[in-house]
Amino acid sequence: MFNRDVSEREDGRGNEREGGQGDGGRWDGRGPAIGRRVLLGTLAVGAGGLAAAPYLQGGLEKFLGAASQVDPTGIVNTLPNGGGFRFYNVAASVPTKTAATYRLKIDGLVEHPRSYTLADLEALPQTRTDLDVQCVTGWRVPKVPFQGVKVSDLLDAAGVKAEGRALRFTCFDGTYSESLTLTQARRNDVLVALRMQGKPIGKDHGGPVRLYVAPMYFYKSAKWLSGISVTDKVEPGYWEEYGYDVDGWVGRSNGRDDAPTV
């Protein structure tokens, strides 16, 4: 029925334009519901994309990763996940700390509280890792070299008192905090990191000094680390107050099943 109306109208088109009140003006059929089809089509494509996402994403990220290597304009890095890392900051602003102003304070239930400068930390034995970084929001950056001082070395130097059970990490952004049990913190892949990807850690990535907890989601790796305090029980950190798991093992927490990073 509609098709007939169309052809009638289109046949008389030229004349009715001149007269303004041509036969076409009498057309009062309702056209097809294209709007509804566009809406449902959009939903269908979205649902398909959601189902195919695990396959699409890998290929797309590989493509964008390769493209960003040869892209002089930097546009690729502005595309979703094109650059790998994403910047998260919970505080209003973060002060800049230099080698001259940076301090890491170790206190709480320890025999010898002390404060380290950047140079002090650089002088200690360094450990290197080269593992994937996995964020709890889904992004993963393969093989990110980190270098720094093992947290366990700093704990040994400070001498943890018998009643010490956990660590509380604080940050010079004034807001963020994190926690680990003593056992978790004594792992060989838990570092006070000074270098990332072969360079001193930049401010955006939490520099000059950040925590790096290799086996856990990246929110555990607090940026802008300024204090380590030994406590008698775990005090949940910033995101953990908002429902993130305190024990943030990659693939075994936060309702996720990512491949473990370690």
């Binding site: 089509g41 959601l50 695990p54 889904g138 996720r256 099943d257």
Partner: peptide, 30 residues
């Protein structure tokens, strides 16, 4: 249609585990 999709995938990111079939990663991707 796009708004419905954005709200749906947004809710999946907000309340992870709402639909165990769809991972948060896929929702974020869309």
């Amino acid at each position: 249609g796009a708004t419905v999709l954005m709200i749906f995938t947004g809710l999946l990111m907000w309340f992870t585990g709402l639909l165990p079939l769809v991972s948060r990663t896929s929702a974020t991707f869309i």
